[in-house]
Design a protein around this nucleic acid. Sequence first.
DNA 1: ATGCTTACTTACTAATAAGTAAATAGTATT
DNA 2: AATACTATTTACTTATTAGTAAGTAAGCAT
Lengths: 181, 181
Amino acid sequence: MNDTREEIVNLADKLVRERGFNGFSYADISKALNIKNAAVHYYFPSKADLGLEVISRAVASFRQITPTRKHLTWREQLDLFIDNYRQKQKHQDICLIGAFSSVSGGLSEDMQRELKKLASDSLNELTTILTEGKEAGEFSFKETPEAKAYLIQSALIASLLLDRVLQNNVFDQIEQGLTGI
Amino acid sequence: MNDTREEIVNLADKLVRERGFNGFSYADISKALNIKNAAVHYYFPSKADLGLEVISRAVASFRQITPTRKHLTWREQLDLFIDNYRQKQKHQDICLIGAFSSVSGGLSEDMQRELKKLASDSLNELTTILTEGKEAGEFSFKETPEAKAYLIQSALIASLLLDRVLQNNVFDQIEQGLTGI
DNA sequence: ATGCTTACTTACTAATAAGTAAATAGTATT
DNA sequence: AATACTATTTACTTATTAGTAAGTAAGCAT
C-alpha cells in the first residue's frame, strides 16, 4: 500500500475516534497531510469509502492478531483482550465500535456491514476464550459464556467512553470485576 | 414552556440518539416541524445551545424522578434503574450518554460540563443504591459499590450501542449478569 | 391608540461540505 | 523516444451548513 494512502487512513482512524465520523472533513485530512482535497478523493472517492477502509483495516488487523495467541492459556488470552482496551484508555482513546455504533444508522450499508463484522468478530473471539477457558477450569462464572462475553465487551467499550467524559479512570475500576472470574 | 420550543427539543433529542449530534442540521428540524430555519435559531441561537438544552433536560428529568423512588427497596430501585435502559432497547434506542460521549471532545464547554453532570448523576445514584443495598444485605458482591456501579453503567450504555449494530438482544443477555448480585 | 413583547417569516450571507473534470509531473514500459 | 500509467494539483461546482438582519402579525399593557 501507498504512503499517502496509508497516512490518510491512519489520520481518518484517529479523527473518527477523536471527533466521530461526522466530525471531520476531507479538508481536515488534506490540510494535516499537506496535500489537496482532491488527492484524498483520488484514493477514496466518497467519505463512505474512507470510512469503510478504516473499519475494514480494523477487521483485518483483528483477524491477523488473533491466531498468534492460540498457544497462550485462556486466561492469558483474556488478559490480552482486555489489555487492548487498557492501551486505548491510557491515551484517552476510544475504540472504533464505540465511535461508530452511536451513529450506525447514518452509515452506508457497506460500513454498517463491516461494523457488524468488527463487533461480532470481537464478540466471537471473547466468547470462545470464555467457553474454552471455563471448560478447562481456568474460569468460573455462573452465566453462559455468550452472556458473559456480551457483558465484558459492553463494559469495555463504554468504560472508554465514560473515561473521556468523567476523566475518572473508569476502566481501572471495572477491570477487577471483569477478570475476577 | 412553549409548544414549538418543546417540539424542537424533543425532535433534537430523538435525532441526537438516532444520528448523533453532528448527524442532523437545523434544516432537518425546521422541515419536520413545518417551520422555518430561523425559527429554530430564535429559540436556540446556536446548535450548541440546542444540544445543551437536550442534555440539561435529561439532567433535570433524572433529578426529578430519582427522589420519587426513595420509598422502594434497594433492589426495586436497581430494577427500575435497569428498566430505564430496557425501555430504550425495546425501541432500538440508545441513551444520551452513549450518543454524546463518543464525540465529547468536539462539544462546547457548556455541553461537556452538562454531559459530565448527566453521567455522574447517574453513576452517583447507582452507587448509592449499591452501597445502601449491600449494607442492608439486599445485594451481595465482592467489588466495591463504586466499581460495581461503573461496571453496570458501562454495560448498560454499550449494550444499547451493540444492540443496534448486531440486532442481537445484547441487553437481554447481560441483564441476568447485572442483577444477579 | 400606542408602544412593547412574543413568535415567528423572508431573504439573505459566509463558510464549509463532498465531489468532479481536466491538466500535469514523474515513473515505468515498449 | 514515444506511450502509458500513477499520483497528484488546479480549479471548479453544487449543496448544505450555521447563522443573521430586517420585517411582520398578533396579543397585551398603559
